[in-house]
Amino acid sequence: MAHDHNVNPNAPLEYQSEVGRLNITGFWTFLGAEIALFSTLFASYFALQSRVGDGPTSTEMFEAGLVMIMTMLLLTSSFTCGIAIHEMRANNVKGVIIWMIITLILGAGFIGYELYEFVHYVHEGVTLSTSAHWSIFFILLGTHGLHVSIGIGWIILLLIQLARRGLTPKTASKVFISSLYWHFLDVVWIFIFTCVYLMGMVS
């Protein structure tokens, strides 16, 4: 921040200010760290996958229909988030806010179904303490779900700022960064869907 405010008016709004550019680079770097974080969780999941002890296996618990709904909700939310950024490039504040709200509703739906799934498992007697397999299941999915929830809260704050201040280089870079985060969580979910659910249901 301790540098000139050299503004480049030809770049997209979020890249125009030096601070905006730095923040975006910084956030990409942070996503690198997030990849390491989720990789560790996935590695632990694979290491503990077969350790079900006296508890049930994934095949006995997973339901394809529920997971498909969750997946569609989150994938669609990534699409609507992309449209929101498209609207931002077109300098349409209203469009950004509307598409972001749709994104958040889809995200909240995803979280709702995830909570329902967790509660359902607990009612069936499968908890964090059932076996190492279920411990890491809840921790991996819980970490992802926590990220999505924090994302929802964060984007709500940004929407308030957008409504108040309109599209400026500063608000634009914030919204753009939150969209990077949202897409990243979608990518992680694709891995969870494949490695945890699909592989868990066929084995």
């Binding site: 632990s44 290491a47 503990l48 350790r51 079900v52 002890g53 908890t127 964090l128 303490s129 059932t130 076996s131 190492a132 397999h133 411990s135 890491i136 809840f138 921790i139």
Partner: peptide, 23 residues
């Protein structure tokens, strides 16, 4: 993960619940 084991009852690294201390 170890905090979860100690505070919230998960069994990732324990000797019971099929945990794996070597992880």
């Amino acid at each position: 993960m170890q905090t979860f084991d100690r505070l919230f009852g998960s069994v990732l690294f324990t000797l019971h619940g099929d945990g794996n201390p070597m992880l």
